[in-house]
Design a binder for these strands. Sequence first.
DNA 1: GCATGTATTTAGACAGGCTAGGTACTAAAT
DNA 2: ATTTAGTACCTAGCCTGTCTAAATACATGC
Lengths: 119, 119
Amino acid sequence: MTTQKVTPINGNSLRGHLETMVLSSLEQSDAHGFEILRRLEKAGCGALKMKEGSLYPALYRLEKSGLIKSRWEKCETNRPGPRRRIYKLTSKGKRRLQQGREEWVQFVSVVGQIVGAPA
Amino acid sequence: MTTQKVTPINGNSLRGHLETMVLSSLEQSDAHGFEILRRLEKAGCGALKMKEGSLYPALYRLEKSGLIKSRWEKCETNRPGPRRRIYKLTSKGKRRLQQGREEWVQFVSVVGQIVGAPA
DNA sequence: GCATGTATTTAGACAGGCTAGGTACTAAAT
DNA sequence: ATTTAGTACCTAGCCTGTCTAAATACATGC
């Protein structure tokens, strides 16, 4: 009974928002892919399941557009595991994030009004 | 100066929301495709540009799923122009609309929190 | 060795909104 | 009569971006 049906947010509805989400998650601090995944999953409260296969291509696109920059982190810095690629917002990326937020607000406003759900 | 730059809501961000929008626009009253387009465009305040090439396939999918039903309207009923296909929500469609609204609220809540834009 | 957890990468599938046309009917203009 | 314009519908094929599913690599523990 208490099976708390959390309808997962699927890929379609994420389209066009994922990149802003990634940029936003990098605002607090630089991070590598897996860490971004963890941040988003945590913030998504179980409803959000972004996959590696979505994230890494997105990161590639973002870097290609100059919105983020990456550097490799050596793994000898007192931690186990493989190498990590650390991503960082560029100033261009910060501006885009601002823009993405404005677009998000407009998107919510417009679609929300049509869908007519009580905000 | 007063060029009110309305960034149009593009196809990607509409993904996965369009069907709920269509269902919602049919709630007030039955309508044919063009009328749905007008309703959405009007509600979108200029920011929303849904195309026929998106709507008609969506209507087809919705009908195939039993969420809407259509009937042809003869054109001799005191109006000019070609025949129209009038769409109507089924009870299954009404239930789906409810579900779509719940999912919308959740979507806005989750993504909104991540994007961090002031709601 | 082998399994496990962490981390990255990629090929290919797939969905669905968009482009860009086409069809058809009516009325008004030429 | 023919053209033009407005309304209405339909569709083939494109394109983008998320997902599936697998491979690779490194370190630790059994």
